[in-house]
Design a binder for these strands. Structure first.
Length: 588
RNA sequence: GGAGCCGUGGUGUAGUUGGUUAACACGCCGGCCUGUCACGCCGGAGAUCGCGGGUUCGAGUCCCGUCGGUUCCGCCA
């Protein structure tokens, strides 16, 4: 028998009733009633019920059907029939029909899998990762991987329509000291020298602009040798974009169209109007975060004004040293037990606060360990400023702007979740703009690029590079979705002298800058167009669209938090001869 | 580098103040069953409780260490 399929399992519908079809797939489940066998056959497109009825079959075929077990790979030839009255299965796309088998070929038998494919979600993750190819058979992962493909396809459609070219850039490049730790690759041809895997194709895409390609994109793998998280893998994918002859608004305008296009196409959700913009400063003031989750309120409030004359020592010393007293209102959390409040305090301290002040609002009064140190006017001021109602819990932190932002911003997220204030069905997009260009790194004792060293300062802030670098703002923009940084980009420096100032501000000597980035700065001297771009975290985007909480769920073959691939068992030692060839010797 | 949680038949879990045959569900194997769809009914096999050490007459249970997974902090745009 020719076993090759005529139709996909998931595509066998009423219109085919009466027709002979051949389907190929995996046995999802079998129900052997003795005289009659039902099998749900699975492929990428869904399930279809096969009926093995001895009255319609050769004995030999029925005997074969009795051998079927879960995950056997088979080909079935049969007639599509409408199911008898009352026998339709509304849970199945193909539930109105079934295939009455005439012939069966077992293409591949299967051992009993180490876990049930249909219930893989609860199984220990190390087992699922070892048998990733089996877990990938589950509907959840298939859906995620299919969604991933659709998003990539829609991104390409949109960018292609808009005159972008997809251009590949090298994977073996030069290590640079800025940013994350590089993965390095030894060179056999040049013993003692190393390539690095790209953290992003940043300089290459800028050089492509200088080459005149005008609009570039790439759905590209990037590598960072840093510790992992639920949303961080050592290799991950970006939608990388760069455009010439543009200003910030041009990039943001087009890219928000792209994201809205993708969300519309794959989720059917229309996002109205332009995506809201917020400056970095405003985000920090209102949400204590540079990537605020705007799906709920609980905004931070600064309370210095009414507490200027407070005699409470914590407040007085904070204000006299130029610090801030800021708070949030955890609505309805007044019922928290002492233990729950202690846990919040513990978190606050872990995040850098010296303490957490709480105030439970009650009918006409407040309950708080610091109430006795405050005047009635001060208490009223705090309650009113935070719009406290009976039953609310007010939480205050007194410290620097940075610490109060950090701590209250995180508490806000924690409480928003605990109190069920987050509407999981919302897609809240937000642009955060006017980023600081540089941040002071206490450890390194110098400024480091907040974004990367090629980000252009605002025109009016260029001078600050030499006078007060910490105050310089950048032509940078981040797109935030539900409190997750989806992507970030900037208008780039395209003038050699500005780029030199930037390196100088970062503490590079001219020699260092030249040896690391000389080729790049030289390129600016041969006619560089104004340009800018953006890169989106592709895996994170898929994770959010798929409603998952780990990017491992949207990557076909992910690594564990200790950066291992449990399926291929990598990393692994190599032969002595391989090391020899590379002139590499182990230290221990 | 640090902290938390998890680890018991193939899978998911239960396992009392440490006590003798480690329980349940799913899966698997066998039997019965012609309209099931998480089929049903009957029977069966399957576990040195992640690994190592310690306390104890006795450890799945207590202690120490270690390995693996995971979440978070540091790190990372």
């Amino acid at each position: 028998m020719d076993w090759r399929r005529t139709h996909f399992c998931g595509a066998v519908t009423e219109e085919l009733a009466g027709q002979e079809v051949v389907v190929n797939g995996w046995v999802n489940r079998r129900r052997d009633l003795g005289g009659m066998i039902f099998v749900d056959l699975r492929d990428r497109f869904g399930l279809v019920q096969i009926v093995f009825d001895p009255n319609l079959l050769d004995d030999g075929v029925f005997a074969q059907a009795e051998k079927l077990r879960g995950e056997f790979v088979v080909s079935v030839r049969g007639i599509v029939q409408l199911r008898p009255e009352g026998q339709a299965n509304p849970n199945l796309k193909t539930g109105k029909v079934e295939i009455h088998a005439r012939d069966l070929t077992i293409l591949s038998a299967a051992k009993t899998p180490p876990f049930e494919i249909n219930r893989a979600e609860d199984v220990d993750e190390s087992l699922r990762l070892k048998y990733r190819y089996l877990h990938l058979r589950s509907k959840d992962l298939q859906d995620a991987i299919i969604l991933r493909h659709q998003v990539a396809a829609e991104a390409r459609n949109f960018l292609n329509e808009n005159h972008f070219l997809e251009i590949e850039t090298p994977m073996l490049i030069r290590s640079t000291p800025e940013g994350a730790r590089d993965f390095i690759v030894p060179s056999r041809v040049h013993p003692g020298e190393f390539y690095a895997l790209p953290q992003s194709p940043q300089m290459f895409k800028q050089l492509l602009m200088i080459s005149g390609f005008d609009r570039y994109y790439q759905i590209v793998r990037c590598f960072r040798d840093e510790d992992l998280r639920a949303d961080r893998q050592p290799e991950f994918t970006q939608i990388d974009v760069e455009m010439s002859f543009v200003e910030q608004e041009d990039v943001m305008g087009l890219m928000e169209q792209m994201i809205c296009h993708i969300i519309k196409k794959v989720k059917g959700i229309t996002i109205d109007g332009p995506i809201p913009r917020m400056t970095y400063q405003e985000a920090m003031e209102r949400y204590g975060s540079d990537k605020p989750d705007t799906r709920f309120g609980m905004e931070l409030v600064t309370l210095n004004e009414g507490l200027n004359d407070s005699e409470f020592r914590v407040f007085a010393s904070t204000i006299s040293t130029g610090g801030f007293i800021r708070g949030i209102n955890a609505e309805g959390a007044g019922t928290f037990t002492r233990r729950e409040i202690d846990q919040l305090t513990e978190k606050a301290e872990q995040w850098g606060a010296r303490g957490l002040i709480w105030m439970a609002v009650e009918e006409g009064t407040v309950r708080s360990p610091i109430a006795k140190f405050l005047t009635e006017g001060e208490i009223n001021y705090i309650v009113e400023s935070l719009r406290g109602k009976p039953g609310d819990l007010l939480l205050l932190v007194a410290d620097s702007f940075k610490v109060t932002s950090e701590v209250l911003g995180r508490l806000r997220l924690l409480l928003g979740e605990q109190l069920g204030m987050i509407d999981e069905n919302r897609f809240d997009l937000l642009w955060v703009v006017e980023w600081p260009l540089l941040e002071y790194d206490e450890e390194a004792g110098r400024y480091v690029a907040a974004h990367h060293p090629f980000t252009s300062p605002l025109d009016e802030d260029i001078e600050l590079l030499e006078t007060d670098p910490g105050r310089a703002r950048a032509k940078a923009y981040d797109l935030v979705l539900n409190g997750v940084e989806l992507g970030g980009g900037s208008i780039r420096i395209y003038d050699r002298s500005v780029q030199e100032k930037m390196f100088k501000a970062l503490g590079f000597t001219m020699d260092e800058a030249m040896s690391q980035f000389g080729y790049f700065m030289e390129a600016f001297e041969y006619g560089a167009p104004p340009h800018g771009g953006i890169a989106f975290g592709f895996d994170r985007l898929i994770m959010l669209l798929a409603g998952r909480d780990s990017i491992r769920d949207v990557i076909a073959f992910p690594k564990t938090v200790s950066a291992r691939d449990l399926m291929v068992d990598a990393p692994a030692p190599v032969n002595q001869s391989q090391l020899q060839e590379l002139k590499i010797k182990m230290l221990d």
